[in-house]
Design a protein around this nucleic acid. Structure first.
Length: 915
RNA sequence: GGGCGAAUAGCUCAGUUGGUUAGAGCACCUGUCUUACACACAGGGGGUCGGGGGUUCGAGUCCCUCUUCGCCCACCA
């Protein structure tokens, strides 16, 4: 027998443990998964939401990747071929912006460098500093298969992007469109609808009066939030049913400031109830006006250029007054108002609350701009994505997001995929520079010469939206478009873990591309977790300065403490609140849990020692005490609770979710709580305490206790490993039955063994009794140094119960519970347990009879109140007639039991007399 | 403007098809440095389940309505 007290340090050293174990896991290939493994094991695949290649780890990543790691470690232990594919996104606009900012600091712009040199510069920047975030993910324990690290701009994935563009073009789903799109004048590129985010803004509504050409004393008033765009007006639209204006339709008005004559037209787009009921039409600078302009074949003069400068750009000769030319659109708005006022055109201004679109990358106000862009026709793709959800092939948790997903897909609009930036996948389209009239060439491979005339070609200048590569992620990372073994083994994947913010940007589009190109949705479950917020419920962000650096937390308390804190607080779809000003307080739950677990382990392992233990399955049932049966039963229950909380890993029929399954699982906080309760409140608080004396004595019973202790702790560590991988691995390695080279990270997920429930119940009585004794002690202020005796009296009131080990557990409460055959006489506190067992604590010299009477009166009153309610229910004919028989039966039995207990209490009370 | 969701203890949240005395963690109060752990142990207080109405033998749970918050979408000139 050995008891190496010094085998584990007294305090948990997170840094040393993490530094020691992460490399060992990777060296042993613990995180890798191969197609060969998938042939014999059920594959379980998660693809990482690829962080921007230049990103720095923040709490959102911490949360997102912890969730993925918990799931992947759980399935890996459960025996799946668990694959977590990591990688990064080249993040077109975002990355280009970073490098442009560097250039600006050097007094340069990308145009000074030229396209080729600029792209080279970005690429080398990415080579040098990119992907650091993946190393940061390792430091929080992420168990991705790093050998597969992918990058959306790698040659392999770029090939997939081209294949996709060309195939969609061939399918008639990619086309070039001429229309008003969202334009960021700062980034110098178009944006998709999703990239142009609405911000509620307090603006003004300007009422402008345009005089009639035929009679300048008459006029029509229009309302606008952007007066500077009046320079590009080509019409005034009124509702054809609006009686106020019907007579004016067909007449002309004269634009103030530039004198251009424009018609008054009738178009049902105009809402008579809004503003003045007349709308100025500026087709080049407003998406709606563009539609009106098309309907009425109006000219489309452009008066604001790509940089947001007001000037006569296109078809706008004579429209912009000298005084306004060259002004930024914001300055132009300020400058045009006095001019309009002087011209008598400014009727009034009123405050106006409206939503204005901003660039999601730089927050610049988006400018609607008329231009040529590549679009994807989304309707056919969206139909498939809707079918995937409706058929049960796909589910979204929390379920309320399914309605949002459906809502968006049903109203889907075509996707603008071209960007006027340089960092990204170039549009694979070439144009003949000679005028041989050859159609644009859309090609999988680079084109050197015009197939028509053999002349020179030039490639389309635009690059593709960064999401046009990330929407392929679930299969491009597995080798698509080639039919690789990886693709066959690991597509479709299982769970996609992300935040709701990118449901449309990314998740819905992945479903669309997966259904379209692979014929199957890329995963069966979308898990949308909450957002990390501060104590004022504000989202953590760089600009607010309310962020927490996960690496700070790792350094202070360890990765496990970080992970535990987040997972324990992670109800389904619930936001995680953390206080950036008080890391100590925020991460105390994780740190405290790790410390407690370490102390449990240190003490338990020192008592179990290093000698081999008997497998629990080899122990004769009769050799087990009630406590042993109880803790084994609790372990079974904990396993069942954890399994139920984590839920089915995939649909039971392998293809589609049934209604019953659909909302189950992925309750990470419930899983963590179930595991915590077992190791802390059951194993440590009760079993470990009850088993101490057995471990101190030599003999067979000591071996039983060692075996059960080791088994229970082993089970606890397995259950906890996905959340707190480092500390559990370090402790598990110290268990006597751990084989050399074995790793908890690859150990089997526990399975309930099924034990004797009845045997376990005997220990529940001990627990209740101890609790009752503690209560009595607290109530009567029995000093800690003073020991009390207690009797356990069986329900029939005559026979005292003898319960093994009760003395030990009693010691916990500084009380000895003894079996006794005679009434001790004298004053005693008496507590009736729900099991019917009565606990009698003789408190000679200590008991205050008045207080005990009061206590019993209170207990009796409470019981009688409940009994009255219960009997009232049973007397209710409706209840007896209509409630399910088993419910009525249960209520009757309960009433009988309570009557008995009340009678017992009354007897006790009478014995005390009336002081 | 359209759609969705939420309101339960001081805080963050559970509460499965209506059916025992509405739970957990944290926080709070009281006691304890009990030989693994004060980052711990033991005990305790605290909720008319947002307001009102309805269905039912029975409502935190179902229906209506009001109030307040949140989210998504939108051609808010």
């Amino acid at each position: 027998m050995t008891a190496p007290d010094d085998s584990l340090p007294t305090t948990y050293d997170a840094a040393a443990t993490e530094a020691a174990w992460y490399p060992r896991w990777t060296e042993h290939g613990v995180f890798t998964a191969s197609p060969e493994e998938a042939a014999t094991h059920e594959p379980f695949v998660i693809v990482i939401p690829p962080p921007n290649v230049t990103a720095v780890l923040h709490m959102g990543h911490g949360l997102n990747n912890t969730v993925q790691d918990v799931l992947i470690r759980w399935r890996r232990m459960a025996g799946d071929a668990a694959l977590w594919v990591p990688g990064t996104d080249h993040a077109g606009i975002a990355t280009q912006n970073v490098v442009e900012k560097q250039l600006a600091a050097e007094g340069q712009s990308r145009f000074d460098l030229g396209r080729e040199a600029f792209v080279e510069r970005v690429a080398s920047f990415v080579d040098r500093t990119g992907g650091e975030i993946l190393n940061q993910l390792k430091s929080i324990g992420s168990s991705a298969d790093w050998s597969r690290t992918a990058y959306t701009f790698s040659p392999e994935l770029s090939r997939a992007v081209r294949e996709t563009f060309v195939r969609l073009y061939e399918d008639g789903l990619v086309y070039k469109g001429h229309r008003v799109i969202h334009w960021c004048p700062r980034c110098g590129t178009s944006l998709s609808d999703e990239e142009a985010e609405f911000t509620e803004t307090a603006g003004k509504l300007y009422h402008l009066r345009y005089p009639l050409a035929s009679d300048p004393t008459q006029g029509i008033t229009v309302a606008t939030t952007r007066p500077e765009t009046m320079l590009g007006d080509v019409a005034v639209a009124v509702n054809p049913d609006d009686e106020r204006y019907q007579a004016l339709i067909g007449q002309e008005v004269v634009l103030p400031l530039n004198g251009v004559r424009i018609p008054i037209i009738g178009d049902s787009y105009t809402d008579p109830a809004f503003g003045s009921g007349a709308v100025k039409i500026t087709p080049a600078h407003d998406a709606n006006d563009f539609e009106v302009g098309k309907r009425h074949q109006l000219p489309m003069p452009v008066v604001i250029d790509a940089e947001g400068i007001v000037r006569e750009v296109d078809g706008a000769a004579g429209r912009v007054p000298e005084a306004l030319r060259g002004l930024d659109r914001a300055d132009a708005r300020k400058a045009i108002l006095p001019l309009l006022e002087a011209a008598g055109a400014l009727v009034k201004m009123e405050p106006h609350q409206h939503s204005v679109r901003h660039c999601y990358r730089c927050d610049t106000v988006v400018e609607p701009r008329l231009s040529d862009q590549w679009f994807v026709r989304m309707q056919p793709l969206a139909d498939k994505a809707l079918t995937a959800l409706r058929s049960g092939e796909l589910r979204i948790l929390p379920e309320r997001w399914e309605a949002v997903y459906v809502n968006w897909l049903e109203g889907i609009r075509d996707w603008n995929i071209s960007r006027q930036i340089w960092w990204g996948h170039r549009v694979p389209v070439w144009y003949c520079t000679a005028s041989c009239g050859h159609a644009p060439i859309v090609s999988r491979t680079d084109v050197a010469a015009c197939p028509g005339c053999g002349g020179a070609v030039r490639q389309d200048e635009d690059v593709l939206d960064t999401w046009f590569s990330s929407w392929l992620w679930p299969f491009s990372t597995l080798g698509w478009p080639d039919e690789t073994p990886d693709l066959k083994a690991f597509y479709p994947g299982d769970v996609l873990v992300t935040a709701p913010e990118i449901l449309f940007f990314w998740v819905a589009r992945m479903v669309m591309s997966g259904c379209w190109f692979m014929g199957k949705a890329p995963f069966h479950t979308v898990y949308l977790h909450g957002t990390v917020r501060d104590m004022q419920h504000r989202k953590m962000s760089k600009s607010l300065g309310n962020g927490i650096d996960p690496l700070d937390v790792v350094h202070l308390y360890g990765a496990d403490a970080l992970r535990w804190t987040m997972v324990a607080g992670l109800g389904l779809g619930v936001d995680v609140m953390l206080d950036p000003t008080d890391l100590e307080k925020s991460f105390a739950p994780g740190r405290n849990f790790c410390t407690k677990l370490w102390n449990i382990g240190r003490f338990l392992l020192s008592r179990v020692g290093t000698d081999p233990v008997t497998p629990v399955s080899a122990l004769p049932s009769a050799s087990l005490t009630a406590a042993d049966h109880w803790i084994l039963e609790r372990l079974d229950a904990a396993i069942a609770d954890c399994d139920a909380a984590l839920g089915p890993a995939r649909p039971a029929n392998g293809a589609t979710w049934t209604e019953a399954e659909r909302s189950r699982g992925l309750r990470l906080s419930e899983y963590a709580e179930a595991a915590r309760r077992f190791v802390w409140n059951e194993l440590a608080d009760w079993y470990l305490e009850s088993v101490k004396p057995r471990l101190n004595a030599e003999g067979a019973d000591r071996e039983v206790a060692r075996a059960v202790l080791a088994h229970a702790f082993d089970g606890a560590l397995r259950l906890l490993h996905p959340v707190v991988p480092f500390i559990t691995e370090a402790l598990w390695q110290q268990l006597p039955q751990t084989a050399d080279g074995a790793m908890l990270a690859r150990a089997a997920w526990p399975v309930a063994r099924g034990g004797s429930r009845d045997e376990a119940k005997a220990f529940e009585i001990v627990r209740d009794a101890v609790a009752a004794i503690r209560q009595v002690r607290a109530e009567y202020n029995v000093q800690p140094g003073v020991w009390v005796d207690a009797l356990l009296v069986a329900p029939d009131g005559t026979q005292a119960m003898v319960i093994p080990q009760v003395d030990t557990v009693g010691a916990l409460a500084r009380a000895r519970v003894q079996a006794a055959s005679a009434n001790p006489g004298g004053a005693a506190a008496q507590v009736l347990l729900t099991s019917g067992v009565e606990v009698v604590v003789p408190l000679a010299g200590m008991i205050d009879l008045a207080k005990e009477r009061q206590r019993l009166d209170g207990e009796l009153a409470q019981l009688e109140k409940q009994l009255t309610a219960l009997e009232g229910r049973l007397a209710n004919e409706g209840f007896v007639a209509k409630a399910p028989p088993q419910v009525v039966e249960a209520e009757r039995a309960k009433a009988a039991e309570w009557r008995g207990r009340a009678q017992q209490l009354r007897t006790k009370r009478e014995a005390l007399g009336n002081g």
